[in-house]
């Protein structure tokens, strides 16, 4: 009988845990407004092919920038992002140094990567395309990201937040990074996870 009670209590506890997990809801308020990117909740990640046997990830931890969403005039929507190259982290110091050197990013000469949107076209409330100019390694090229709006709504501190995920594939040779194309892939998947706090 005692065992049955304990089992029931555990089941209730587990059930309540699941209920708590289910409490996580994506906020679906309007994303309209001017936002400043929250660097603590934003990141640029990338995946690059290594010697034809794996796809290795890296990330840039520091992002600054703004975005604005105008529901009445979507053509006025804008995104502007700046990323200091020395915020690179690939989980190995020597590789970080190698990537930031002349072989690839040449960060001393080109210390910042930036993106400025030229158009945002939403196919529906949550998905669309973000097009703009990506400046990397001193070269500026047009790039189109697939864009997904995650959610928008109030935070517990009286603020208002909205977040997006943007993903694309670039070719590093387009940006003048040609070294060792037979060992490190030309195609690189880039993903921006951005959370902004409304002004």
């Amino acid at each position: 009988m005692k065992t049955l009670k304990l089992t029931l209590a555990a089941a209730i506890a587990l059930q309540s845990g699941i209920v708590l997990a289910d409490d996580y809801k994506v906020q679906s308020a309007s994303p309209a407004g001017n936002y400043k990117i929250d660097p603590v909740h934003s990141v640029v990640q990338f995946w690059v092919g290594h010697m034809g046997v794996s796809e290795f990830p890296g990330r840039f931890d520091t992002i600054t920038g703004t975005f604005s969403v105008d529901a009445a005039h979507p053509e006025a929507d804008k995104v502007s992002v700046q990323v200091p190259m020395d915020s690179l982290d690939t989980n190995f110091d020597k590789r970080n140094k190698d990537l930031l050197g002349p072989d690839f990013f040449n960060a001393k000469q080109f210390p910042t990567m930036s993106f400025a949107s030229t158009s945002i076209k939403m196919k529906n409330a949550n998905e669309g395309e973000l097009t703009g100019s990506l400046t990397l390694h001193g070269v500026t090229k047009p790039v189109t990201f697939s864009l997904r709006h995650i959610g928008a709504g109030p935070d517990p501190w009286g603020g208002y937040r909205s977040g997006y995920v943007a993903k694309t594939t670039i070719h590093r040779s387009d940006f003048g990074m040609n070294y060792m194309l037979n060992g490190i892939s030309d195609a690189i998947v880039v993903q921006l996870n951005i959370e902004g706090k409304r002004d």
Partner: peptide, 14 residues
């Protein structure tokens, strides 16, 4: 063969 780029003026030191 190694660097594979020629431009003038150069964009990088090398």
């Amino acid at each position: 063969l190694i660097y594979g780029k020629f431009s003038f003026p150069p964009t990088e030191a090398q």
